[in-house]
């Protein structure tokens, strides 16, 4: 019995964005990374095309992490004491992108200064040829001060500045405008809020192809279904032609998974949770895999083993 394959062609397409700039484009990256561009649901290559596979960013901190799981510290070793070495290690671990997360304070509790932020950005840019993302500590004043400095230091490199939120996006967007960067706009797991922030950022004159949206997510077992559905809805809206949702999506499964006990700790948990090492990687891997299935274009990860796992899955999904 001949069955007609139900192909779905969508009128909309996610904008393709370019992260990083090579010397020819005014930067120093050894290659650029393109994200987005799909006109189909994730991996539904019978319906449309996905010119770029979902990308993997590895999150590195500006100093030895204080509250990270010992498993992560063990996996990275001493490089966590030096962001430049860490960035290089991340590149070697198979990242497409390196995300530098700035902290509120430096050694001894002194506030991170604009000069620190510049030096850190420069060090990471020198250590890796990958395009980078730099996220501020998440406090309005500090973010604005540090990210403006970062934006200047990395002028021309097409880095991604984060995080723009509704309560604080104007300064970061202005810094991106002035220095040719992209921004990451984060909203709390809600389609309309995401769309609204995109409109607000675009209203300031930043072209849509320099905005990435971060709909926020949650870990496996801790509310992931909200993020999952919000991303599916955003992507469907984009494919149906809603311009203000046609942006690539970035989510942070690494952060979300590793804050949960399932990944973070090995003791004082039920025996039914099984082997800690495998469970930890599994938790981050499944969180990331599932979010990729709901439309993530960039996943930010923490453990090198997860990177391998997620990469292998993406490769299999993209295989023709």
């Amino acid at each position: 019995m001949p069955v007609e394959i139900p192909v779905e062609q969508w009128p909309g397409r996610v904008i393709e964005e370019t992260l990083g700039a090579t010397p020819a484009e005014g930067g120093t990256r050894s290659r650029v990374v393109k994200v987005g561009g799909e006109n189909t649901l994730p991996f539904m290559l019978t319906d449309g095309e996905m010119p770029n596979p979902p990308r993997i960013a590895i999150e590195i901190l500006d100093q030895r992490p204080k509250d990270w799981s010992p498993l992560l510290l063990e996996a990275w070793g001493d490089v966590v004491d030096d962001p430049a070495k860490w960035a290089k290690a991340a590149e070697e671990a198979g990242a497409d992108l390196v995300l530098l997360q700035l902290s509120l304070t430096r050694d001894g509790g002194k506030p991170t200064t604009a000069a620190d932020a510049k030096a850190l950005t420069r060090a990471v840019l020198q250590a890796t040829g990958l395009p980078i993302l730099v996220f501020g500590p998440g406090q309005v004043d500090a973010d604005n001060e540090l990210l403006v400095a970062v934006a200047e230091e990395a002028a021309g490199e097409r880095i991604v500045l984060g995080i723009c939120e509704e309560k604080n996006y104007r300064t970061i967007v202005a810094a991106a405008l002035a220095n040719g960067h992209l921004v990451n706009g984060r909203t709390a797991m809600d389609v309309n809020l995401a769309k609204q922030l995109n409109i607000l950022i675009a209203d300031m004159g930043l072209p849509l192809d320099r905005i990435i949206m971060d709909p926020t997510t949650a870990s496996l077992g801790y509310g992931i279904e909200y993020g999952y559905s919000v991303m599916e809805r955003l992507r469907l809206a984009a494919l149906q032609g809603d311009k203000m949702t046609q942006l690539p999506m970035l989510v942070t499964p690494g952060f979300e998974a590793w804050r949960q006990k399932e990944a973070k700790v090995g003791e004082g948990v039920p025996a039914s949770w099984g082997d800690w090492r495998q469970r930890a990687v599994l938790w981050e891997t499944l969180t990331a895999t599932n979010l990729i299935l709901s439309g993530a274009d960039i996943v930010v990860l923490r453990h090198p083993e997860t990177v391998k796992r997620v990469r292998a899955f993406i490769d299999r999904m993209m295989a023709k």
């Binding site: 300064t171 967007v173 202005a174 002035a178 300031m204």
Partner: peptide
């Protein structure tokens, strides 16, 4: 220009 420009653009 950049320093003031950012403040003019972001509304400060």
């Amino acid at each position: 220009l950049r320093s003031w420009g950012i403040q003019l653009v972001d509304g400060r």
